[in-house]
Design a protein around this nucleic acid. Structure first.
Lengths: 227, 227
DNA sequence: GTCTATATCATGATAGAC
DNA sequence: GTCTATCATGATATAGAC
Protein backbone atom coordinates (compact mmCIF):
# COMPACT_ATOMS: atom_id res chain seq x y z
CA UNK A 1 0.00 0.00 0.00
CA UNK A 2 2.97 2.33 0.44
CA UNK A 3 4.18 4.11 -2.64
CA UNK A 4 7.73 5.06 -1.74
CA UNK A 5 9.99 2.20 -0.69
CA UNK A 6 9.77 -1.54 -0.17
CA UNK A 7 10.20 -1.10 3.58
CA UNK A 8 7.32 -1.96 5.88
CA UNK A 9 5.94 0.96 7.84
CA UNK A 10 7.08 1.80 11.34
CA UNK A 11 4.60 -0.25 13.39
CA UNK A 12 5.36 -3.37 11.41
CA UNK A 13 9.11 -2.85 11.60
CA UNK A 14 8.75 -2.51 15.35
CA UNK A 15 6.71 -5.72 15.51
CA UNK A 16 9.34 -7.56 13.50
CA UNK A 17 12.18 -6.31 15.66
CA UNK A 18 10.34 -7.03 18.90
CA UNK A 19 9.41 -10.53 17.77
CA UNK A 20 13.01 -11.36 16.94
CA UNK A 21 14.50 -9.90 20.11
CA UNK A 22 11.84 -11.23 22.46
CA UNK A 23 12.42 -14.69 21.08
CA UNK A 24 16.18 -14.43 21.19
CA UNK A 25 16.77 -12.81 24.58
CA UNK A 26 13.45 -13.11 26.36
CA UNK A 27 10.88 -10.41 26.94
CA UNK A 28 12.18 -9.04 30.23
CA UNK A 29 15.75 -8.95 28.99
CA UNK A 30 14.82 -6.93 25.92
CA UNK A 31 14.73 -3.17 26.29
CA UNK A 32 12.58 -0.89 24.19
CA UNK A 33 15.75 0.90 23.19
CA UNK A 34 17.09 -2.29 21.64
CA UNK A 35 13.82 -2.86 19.81
CA UNK A 36 13.51 0.60 18.34
CA UNK A 37 17.16 0.70 17.41
CA UNK A 38 16.84 -2.53 15.47
CA UNK A 39 13.64 -1.29 13.86
CA UNK A 40 15.26 1.95 12.78
CA UNK A 41 12.64 3.86 14.72
CA UNK A 42 12.54 6.06 17.74
CA UNK A 43 12.00 5.07 21.34
CA UNK A 44 8.79 7.05 21.56
CA UNK A 45 7.33 5.22 18.60
CA UNK A 46 6.54 2.15 20.68
CA UNK A 47 4.44 4.05 23.12
CA UNK A 48 2.78 5.98 20.35
CA UNK A 49 1.75 2.94 18.39
CA UNK A 50 1.30 0.30 21.09
CA UNK A 51 0.85 2.20 24.32
CA UNK A 52 3.40 0.30 26.36
CA UNK A 53 5.80 -2.59 26.31
CA UNK A 54 3.03 -4.92 27.42
CA UNK A 55 0.87 -3.63 24.61
CA UNK A 56 3.69 -4.29 22.18
CA UNK A 57 4.10 -7.88 23.37
CA UNK A 58 0.40 -8.50 23.00
CA UNK A 59 0.45 -7.04 19.50
CA UNK A 60 3.40 -9.25 18.57
CA UNK A 61 1.57 -12.32 19.79
CA UNK A 62 -1.78 -11.42 18.34
CA UNK A 63 -0.37 -10.71 14.90
CA UNK A 64 0.26 -14.38 14.19
CA UNK A 65 -1.74 -16.18 16.85
CA UNK A 66 -5.14 -15.30 15.48
CA UNK A 67 -4.44 -16.67 12.03
CA UNK A 68 -2.69 -19.71 13.50
CA UNK A 69 -5.74 -20.57 15.57
CA UNK A 70 -8.00 -19.94 12.61
CA UNK A 71 -5.99 -22.45 10.59
CA UNK A 72 -6.34 -25.01 13.37
CA UNK A 73 -10.09 -24.57 13.50
CA UNK A 74 -10.37 -24.76 9.73
CA UNK A 75 -8.41 -27.98 9.63
CA UNK A 76 -10.58 -29.47 12.34
CA UNK A 77 -13.68 -28.39 10.46
CA UNK A 78 -12.39 -30.13 7.37
CA UNK A 79 -11.61 -33.29 9.31
CA UNK A 80 -15.07 -33.39 10.83
CA UNK A 81 -16.70 -32.79 7.47
CA UNK A 82 -14.60 -35.51 5.87
CA UNK A 83 -15.43 -38.00 8.59
CA UNK A 84 -19.13 -37.34 8.30
CA UNK A 85 -19.84 -36.10 11.80
CA UNK A 86 -17.80 -34.66 14.64
CA UNK A 87 -18.06 -37.89 16.61
CA UNK A 88 -16.27 -39.95 13.95
CA UNK A 89 -13.02 -38.03 13.65
CA UNK A 90 -10.00 -40.14 14.44
CA UNK A 91 -7.63 -38.92 17.16
CA UNK A 92 -4.84 -38.78 14.62
CA UNK A 93 -6.61 -36.07 12.67
CA UNK A 94 -7.39 -33.99 15.73
CA UNK A 95 -3.73 -34.00 16.71
CA UNK A 96 -2.80 -33.14 13.17
CA UNK A 97 -5.26 -30.26 13.01
CA UNK A 98 -3.92 -28.71 16.16
CA UNK A 99 -0.19 -29.21 15.81
CA UNK A 100 0.52 -29.30 12.10
CA UNK A 101 -0.17 -25.60 11.50
CA UNK A 102 2.00 -24.69 14.47
CA UNK A 103 4.85 -26.92 13.35
CA UNK A 104 4.68 -25.45 9.88
CA UNK A 105 4.90 -21.97 11.34
CA UNK A 106 7.82 -22.96 13.56
CA UNK A 107 9.68 -24.36 10.58
CA UNK A 108 9.71 -20.95 8.92
CA UNK A 109 13.21 -19.86 9.80
CA UNK A 110 13.42 -16.72 7.71
CA UNK A 111 9.99 -15.08 7.91
CA UNK A 112 9.85 -14.77 11.67
CA UNK A 113 7.49 -17.69 12.19
CA UNK A 114 10.09 -19.59 14.13
CA UNK A 115 10.85 -16.63 16.37
CA UNK A 116 7.16 -16.21 17.00
CA UNK A 117 6.62 -19.82 17.97
CA UNK A 118 9.57 -19.79 20.33
CA UNK A 119 8.24 -16.64 21.93
CA UNK A 120 4.77 -18.14 22.19
CA UNK A 121 6.08 -21.32 23.75
CA UNK A 122 8.06 -19.43 26.33
CA UNK A 123 5.19 -17.05 27.00
CA UNK A 124 2.95 -19.96 27.92
CA UNK A 125 5.12 -20.48 30.98
CA UNK A 126 5.52 -16.83 31.84
CA UNK A 127 3.92 -16.10 35.21
CA UNK A 128 3.06 -12.47 34.45
CA UNK A 129 -0.68 -12.07 35.02
CA UNK A 130 -1.42 -9.85 32.06
CA UNK A 131 0.17 -12.42 29.78
CA UNK A 132 -1.67 -15.35 31.28
CA UNK A 133 -4.96 -13.55 30.98
CA UNK A 134 -4.20 -12.45 27.45
CA UNK A 135 -3.29 -15.93 26.28
CA UNK A 136 -6.19 -17.53 28.07
CA UNK A 137 -8.60 -15.19 26.32
CA UNK A 138 -6.84 -15.49 22.99
CA UNK A 139 -6.83 -19.27 23.07
CA UNK A 140 -10.07 -20.03 24.83
CA UNK A 141 -12.07 -20.75 21.70
CA UNK A 142 -9.49 -23.15 20.24
CA UNK A 143 -8.91 -24.88 23.53
CA UNK A 144 -12.58 -25.52 24.12
CA UNK A 145 -13.09 -26.69 20.58
CA UNK A 146 -10.18 -29.10 20.63
CA UNK A 147 -10.81 -30.33 24.15
CA UNK A 148 -14.25 -31.37 23.01
CA UNK A 149 -12.90 -32.86 19.80
CA UNK A 150 -10.34 -34.97 21.65
CA UNK A 151 -12.94 -36.16 24.11
CA UNK A 152 -15.28 -37.22 21.28
CA UNK A 153 -12.49 -38.85 19.33
CA UNK A 154 -11.55 -41.00 22.30
CA UNK A 155 -14.83 -42.03 23.90
CA UNK A 156 -13.22 -44.88 25.85
CA UNK A 157 -10.87 -42.58 27.74
CA UNK A 158 -12.21 -40.42 30.57
CA UNK A 159 -12.41 -36.78 29.48
CA UNK A 160 -10.14 -35.62 32.29
CA UNK A 161 -7.49 -38.05 31.17
CA UNK A 162 -7.76 -36.77 27.62
CA UNK A 163 -7.36 -33.20 28.84
CA UNK A 164 -4.22 -34.08 30.69
CA UNK A 165 -2.78 -35.79 27.67
CA UNK A 166 -3.59 -32.79 25.56
CA UNK A 167 -1.63 -30.77 28.07
CA UNK A 168 1.30 -33.17 27.95
CA UNK A 169 1.28 -32.91 24.18
CA UNK A 170 1.49 -29.14 24.44
CA UNK A 171 4.56 -29.52 26.61
CA UNK A 172 6.32 -31.90 24.28
CA UNK A 173 5.54 -29.60 21.40
CA UNK A 174 6.91 -26.55 23.18
CA UNK A 175 10.17 -28.26 23.95
CA UNK A 176 10.40 -29.50 20.41
CA UNK A 177 10.25 -25.96 19.12
CA UNK A 178 12.89 -24.58 21.40
CA UNK A 179 14.69 -27.83 21.15
CA UNK A 180 16.74 -27.95 18.03
CA UNK A 181 19.43 -25.82 19.62
CA UNK A 182 18.52 -26.91 23.09
CA UNK A 183 19.05 -30.58 22.49
CA UNK A 184 22.63 -30.17 21.39
CA UNK A 185 23.33 -28.12 24.48
CA UNK A 186 21.67 -30.55 26.84
CA UNK A 187 23.16 -33.71 25.51
CA UNK A 188 26.33 -32.54 23.85
CA UNK A 189 25.34 -34.53 20.80
CA UNK A 190 24.66 -32.83 17.52
CA UNK A 191 21.31 -34.24 16.49
CA UNK A 192 20.88 -34.07 12.77
CA UNK A 193 21.96 -30.80 11.29
CA UNK A 194 19.95 -28.79 8.90
CA UNK A 195 17.57 -31.69 8.54
CA UNK A 196 16.30 -31.34 12.06
CA UNK A 197 13.42 -29.09 11.15
CA UNK A 198 12.48 -31.21 8.17
CA UNK A 199 12.26 -34.33 10.26
CA UNK A 200 10.63 -32.74 13.26
CA UNK A 201 6.98 -33.02 12.15
CA UNK A 202 7.06 -36.79 11.71
CA UNK A 203 9.12 -37.35 14.81
CA UNK A 204 6.89 -35.23 16.95
CA UNK A 205 3.62 -36.56 15.59
CA UNK A 206 4.73 -40.12 16.25
CA UNK A 207 5.56 -39.27 19.83
CA UNK A 208 2.38 -37.30 20.46
CA UNK A 209 0.15 -40.03 19.08
CA UNK A 210 1.98 -42.65 21.08
CA UNK A 211 1.40 -40.71 24.25
CA UNK A 212 -2.18 -39.84 23.49
CA UNK A 213 -3.13 -43.44 22.82
CA UNK A 214 -1.12 -44.98 25.62
CA UNK A 215 -2.87 -47.58 27.79
CA UNK A 216 -4.63 -46.02 30.74
CA UNK A 217 -2.70 -46.09 34.02
CA UNK A 218 -3.60 -48.96 36.28
CA UNK A 219 -4.67 -51.29 33.49
CA UNK A 220 -3.07 -54.26 31.83
CA UNK A 221 -0.29 -53.07 29.47
CA UNK A 222 -1.17 -54.16 25.94
CA UNK A 223 -4.88 -54.84 26.18
CA UNK A 224 -5.81 -52.04 23.78
CA UNK A 225 -9.37 -52.40 24.95
CA UNK A 226 -9.72 -48.67 24.39
CA UNK A 227 -10.16 -48.27 20.69
CA UNK B 1 23.82 -26.76 64.70
CA UNK B 2 22.65 -23.35 65.94
CA UNK B 3 22.08 -23.01 69.66
CA UNK B 4 19.70 -20.06 69.80
CA UNK B 5 16.47 -20.44 67.82
CA UNK B 6 14.84 -22.89 65.45
CA UNK B 7 15.21 -20.47 62.56
CA UNK B 8 17.50 -21.35 59.69
CA UNK B 9 20.47 -19.07 59.29
CA UNK B 10 20.47 -16.10 56.94
CA UNK B 11 21.82 -17.73 53.77
CA UNK B 12 19.27 -20.50 53.97
CA UNK B 13 16.41 -18.12 54.66
CA UNK B 14 17.46 -16.14 51.62
CA UNK B 15 17.57 -19.29 49.52
CA UNK B 16 14.08 -20.24 50.69
CA UNK B 17 12.65 -16.83 49.94
CA UNK B 18 14.35 -16.60 46.55
CA UNK B 19 13.17 -20.07 45.59
CA UNK B 20 9.57 -19.22 46.40
CA UNK B 21 9.57 -15.83 44.70
CA UNK B 22 11.51 -16.91 41.63
CA UNK B 23 9.02 -19.71 41.12
CA UNK B 24 5.99 -17.53 41.74
CA UNK B 25 6.86 -14.39 39.80
CA UNK B 26 9.79 -15.38 37.63
CA UNK B 27 13.44 -14.53 38.12
CA UNK B 28 13.54 -11.25 36.24
CA UNK B 29 10.39 -9.99 37.89
CA UNK B 30 11.73 -10.66 41.38
CA UNK B 31 13.82 -7.92 42.97
CA UNK B 32 16.47 -8.55 45.57
CA UNK B 33 14.60 -6.21 47.86
CA UNK B 34 11.54 -8.46 47.72
CA UNK B 35 13.70 -11.47 48.46
CA UNK B 36 15.52 -10.03 51.44
CA UNK B 37 12.35 -8.55 52.85
CA UNK B 38 10.64 -11.93 52.77
CA UNK B 39 13.72 -13.55 54.27
CA UNK B 40 13.88 -11.03 57.07
CA UNK B 41 17.40 -10.09 56.01
CA UNK B 42 19.11 -7.06 54.65
CA UNK B 43 19.53 -6.12 51.02
CA UNK B 44 23.31 -6.31 51.29
CA UNK B 45 23.15 -9.86 52.61
CA UNK B 46 22.55 -11.32 49.16
CA UNK B 47 25.70 -9.82 47.73
CA UNK B 48 27.64 -10.78 50.82
CA UNK B 49 26.64 -14.42 50.75
CA UNK B 50 26.11 -15.07 47.06
CA UNK B 51 27.96 -12.35 45.24
CA UNK B 52 25.16 -11.31 42.92
CA UNK B 53 21.64 -12.07 41.86
CA UNK B 54 22.97 -14.54 39.31
CA UNK B 55 24.99 -16.20 42.02
CA UNK B 56 21.89 -16.46 44.15
CA UNK B 57 19.89 -18.09 41.40
CA UNK B 58 22.63 -20.63 40.80
CA UNK B 59 22.79 -21.39 44.52
CA UNK B 60 19.02 -21.87 44.63
CA UNK B 61 19.17 -24.29 41.75
CA UNK B 62 22.24 -26.16 42.92
CA UNK B 63 20.86 -26.70 46.41
CA UNK B 64 18.34 -29.27 45.23
CA UNK B 65 19.48 -30.16 41.75
CA UNK B 66 22.60 -32.02 42.83
CA UNK B 67 20.75 -34.36 45.14
CA UNK B 68 17.95 -34.81 42.62
CA UNK B 69 20.40 -35.90 39.97
CA UNK B 70 22.16 -38.14 42.45
CA UNK B 71 18.86 -39.89 43.16
CA UNK B 72 18.28 -40.39 39.46
CA UNK B 73 21.69 -41.94 39.00
CA UNK B 74 21.24 -44.16 42.05
CA UNK B 75 17.92 -45.42 40.77
CA UNK B 76 19.40 -46.18 37.38
CA UNK B 77 22.29 -47.99 39.04
CA UNK B 78 19.82 -50.11 40.95
CA UNK B 79 17.85 -50.89 37.82
CA UNK B 80 20.98 -51.96 35.96
CA UNK B 81 22.12 -54.10 38.85
CA UNK B 82 18.70 -55.72 39.13
CA UNK B 83 18.54 -56.46 35.42
CA UNK B 84 21.98 -58.05 35.43
CA UNK B 85 23.75 -55.76 33.00
CA UNK B 86 23.21 -52.29 31.65
CA UNK B 87 22.07 -53.62 28.30
CA UNK B 88 19.11 -55.46 29.76
CA UNK B 89 17.30 -52.63 31.50
CA UNK B 90 13.78 -52.12 30.23
CA UNK B 91 12.83 -48.68 28.92
CA UNK B 92 10.16 -48.45 31.56
CA UNK B 93 12.73 -48.50 34.32
CA UNK B 94 14.94 -45.89 32.70
CA UNK B 95 12.01 -43.53 32.41
CA UNK B 96 11.11 -44.27 36.00
CA UNK B 97 14.63 -43.65 37.23
CA UNK B 98 14.80 -40.27 35.57
CA UNK B 99 11.35 -38.88 36.18
CA UNK B 100 10.09 -40.47 39.39
CA UNK B 101 12.50 -38.58 41.69
CA UNK B 102 11.59 -35.32 39.98
CA UNK B 103 7.87 -35.96 40.22
CA UNK B 104 8.22 -36.82 43.88
CA UNK B 105 10.06 -33.56 44.45
CA UNK B 106 7.44 -31.62 42.53
CA UNK B 107 4.67 -33.13 44.62
CA UNK B 108 6.16 -31.63 47.77
CA UNK B 109 3.92 -28.61 48.12
CA UNK B 110 5.04 -27.41 51.54
CA UNK B 111 8.77 -27.96 51.66
CA UNK B 112 9.65 -25.90 48.63
CA UNK B 113 10.23 -28.85 46.33
CA UNK B 114 7.37 -27.83 44.13
CA UNK B 115 8.58 -24.26 43.86
CA UNK B 116 12.02 -25.53 42.97
CA UNK B 117 10.77 -27.82 40.24
CA UNK B 118 8.67 -25.08 38.70
CA UNK B 119 11.65 -22.77 38.75
CA UNK B 120 13.85 -25.44 37.23
CA UNK B 121 11.35 -26.18 34.50
CA UNK B 122 11.07 -22.53 33.60
CA UNK B 123 14.81 -22.03 33.80
CA UNK B 124 15.35 -24.71 31.18
CA UNK B 125 13.73 -22.38 28.67
CA UNK B 126 15.41 -19.22 29.88
CA UNK B 127 17.67 -17.82 27.15
CA UNK B 128 20.15 -16.16 29.51
CA UNK B 129 23.58 -17.51 28.65
CA UNK B 130 24.90 -17.87 32.17
CA UNK B 131 21.86 -19.98 33.03
CA UNK B 132 22.16 -22.18 29.98
CA UNK B 133 25.81 -22.79 30.65
CA UNK B 134 25.18 -23.45 34.30
CA UNK B 135 22.42 -25.97 33.66
CA UNK B 136 24.35 -27.64 30.87
CA UNK B 137 27.30 -28.18 33.19
CA UNK B 138 25.14 -29.18 36.12
CA UNK B 139 23.18 -31.74 34.13
CA UNK B 140 25.80 -33.02 31.76
CA UNK B 141 26.62 -36.17 33.72
CA UNK B 142 22.98 -37.23 34.11
CA UNK B 143 22.12 -36.41 30.54
CA UNK B 144 24.98 -38.45 29.14
CA UNK B 145 24.26 -41.33 31.45
CA UNK B 146 20.56 -41.47 30.62
CA UNK B 147 21.02 -40.82 26.94
CA UNK B 148 23.21 -43.91 26.81
CA UNK B 149 20.80 -45.88 28.98
CA UNK B 150 17.86 -45.07 26.73
CA UNK B 151 19.82 -45.97 23.64
CA UNK B 152 20.81 -49.34 25.12
CA UNK B 153 17.31 -50.03 26.39
CA UNK B 154 15.88 -49.49 22.92
CA UNK B 155 18.32 -51.08 20.50
CA UNK B 156 15.77 -51.19 17.71
CA UNK B 157 15.35 -47.43 17.61
CA UNK B 158 18.04 -45.18 16.12
CA UNK B 159 19.92 -43.34 18.88
CA UNK B 160 19.03 -39.92 17.45
CA UNK B 161 15.38 -40.83 17.56
CA UNK B 162 15.71 -41.90 21.17
CA UNK B 163 17.38 -38.61 22.03
CA UNK B 164 14.56 -36.66 20.51
CA UNK B 165 12.01 -38.66 22.39
CA UNK B 166 13.91 -38.09 25.58
CA UNK B 167 13.66 -34.41 24.81
CA UNK B 168 9.94 -34.62 24.13
CA UNK B 169 9.50 -36.39 27.46
CA UNK B 170 11.29 -33.56 29.21
CA UNK B 171 8.84 -31.13 27.65
CA UNK B 172 5.77 -33.07 28.67
CA UNK B 173 7.16 -33.37 32.17
CA UNK B 174 7.84 -29.65 32.44
CA UNK B 175 4.34 -28.76 31.43
CA UNK B 176 2.96 -31.32 33.81
CA UNK B 177 4.71 -29.62 36.69
CA UNK B 178 3.53 -26.14 35.89
CA UNK B 179 0.30 -27.59 34.71
CA UNK B 180 -1.97 -28.20 37.59
CA UNK B 181 -2.95 -24.54 37.74
CA UNK B 182 -2.17 -24.01 34.10
CA UNK B 183 -4.59 -26.59 32.82
CA UNK B 184 -7.57 -25.02 34.51
CA UNK B 185 -6.63 -21.68 33.07
CA UNK B 186 -6.10 -22.98 29.58
CA UNK B 187 -9.19 -25.09 29.31
CA UNK B 188 -11.53 -23.49 31.81
CA UNK B 189 -12.21 -26.93 33.20
CA UNK B 190 -11.29 -27.81 36.73
CA UNK B 191 -9.33 -31.00 36.39
CA UNK B 192 -9.45 -33.04 39.54
CA UNK B 193 -8.90 -30.98 42.60
CA UNK B 194 -6.53 -31.83 45.37
CA UNK B 195 -6.04 -35.25 43.83
CA UNK B 196 -4.26 -33.86 40.82
CA UNK B 197 -0.80 -34.26 42.28
CA UNK B 198 -1.56 -37.72 43.58
CA UNK B 199 -2.66 -38.92 40.18
CA UNK B 200 -0.01 -37.11 38.21
CA UNK B 201 2.77 -39.75 38.43
CA UNK B 202 0.71 -42.52 36.87
CA UNK B 203 -0.86 -40.28 34.29
CA UNK B 204 2.44 -38.84 33.23
CA UNK B 205 4.33 -42.11 33.17
CA UNK B 206 1.68 -43.67 30.97
CA UNK B 207 1.96 -40.82 28.50
CA UNK B 208 5.74 -40.77 28.48
CA UNK B 209 6.01 -44.49 27.90
CA UNK B 210 3.44 -44.35 25.14
CA UNK B 211 5.40 -41.66 23.38
CA UNK B 212 8.75 -43.29 23.92
CA UNK B 213 7.62 -46.60 22.47
CA UNK B 214 5.57 -45.20 19.62
CA UNK B 215 6.07 -46.74 16.18
CA UNK B 216 8.83 -45.05 14.22
CA UNK B 217 7.71 -42.42 11.72
CA UNK B 218 7.54 -43.54 8.13
CA UNK B 219 7.15 -47.24 8.90
CA UNK B 220 4.21 -49.56 8.96
CA UNK B 221 2.44 -49.02 12.29
CA UNK B 222 3.06 -52.19 14.32
CA UNK B 223 5.81 -53.85 12.27
CA UNK B 224 8.76 -53.26 14.61
CA UNK B 225 11.01 -54.43 11.81
CA UNK B 226 13.75 -51.89 12.42
CA UNK B 227 16.59 -53.70 14.09
C1' DG C 1 3.79 10.53 12.70
C1' DT C 2 8.30 11.19 14.12
C1' DC C 3 11.83 13.00 16.68
C1' DT C 4 14.83 15.06 20.91
C1' DA C 5 15.10 15.63 25.39
C1' DT C 6 13.83 14.59 29.74
C1' DA C 7 11.09 13.04 33.81
C1' DT C 8 10.51 9.48 37.04
C1' DC C 9 11.47 5.48 39.06
C1' DA C 10 13.34 0.85 40.35
C1' DT C 11 17.01 -1.96 40.01
C1' DG C 12 21.61 -4.32 41.34
C1' DA C 13 25.58 -3.37 43.69
C1' DT C 14 28.79 -1.20 47.04
C1' DA C 15 31.09 1.64 50.87
C1' DG C 16 31.77 1.98 55.30
C1' DA C 17 30.03 2.27 60.26
C1' DC C 18 29.11 -0.99 63.84
C1' DG D 1 27.97 -10.78 59.70
C1' DT D 2 24.73 -7.23 59.56
C1' DC D 3 23.14 -2.83 58.88
C1' DT D 4 22.26 2.23 56.68
C1' DA D 5 22.91 5.07 53.11
C1' DT D 6 24.06 5.83 48.66
C1' DC D 7 25.75 5.22 43.84
C1' DA D 8 25.44 4.42 39.07
C1' DT D 9 22.75 2.55 35.70
C1' DG D 10 19.16 1.40 32.86
C1' DA D 11 14.35 1.00 32.50
C1' DT D 12 9.58 2.80 30.82
C1' DA D 13 7.08 6.54 29.72
C1' DT D 14 6.01 11.37 28.40
C1' DA D 15 6.23 16.44 26.91
C1' DG D 16 6.62 19.19 23.39
C1' DA D 17 9.08 20.83 19.07
C1' DC D 18 8.79 19.86 14.22
Amino acid sequence: MSDSASLPDTPERILDAAEALFAERGVEATSMRAITQRAGANVAAVNYHFGSKEGLLQAVLRRRLDSLNARRIAQLDAAEAGAGGAARVKPHLVVQAFFAPAIALAADRTGGGQAFMRLLARSSGNPAQFLREFLAAENSAVMERFSAAFARAMPDVPPQEVLWRFHFMLGAFSYAIMGVDNLRLLTGVDVDGEDAWARLPDRLMAFLLGGLRAPLPGLAPPGDSAS
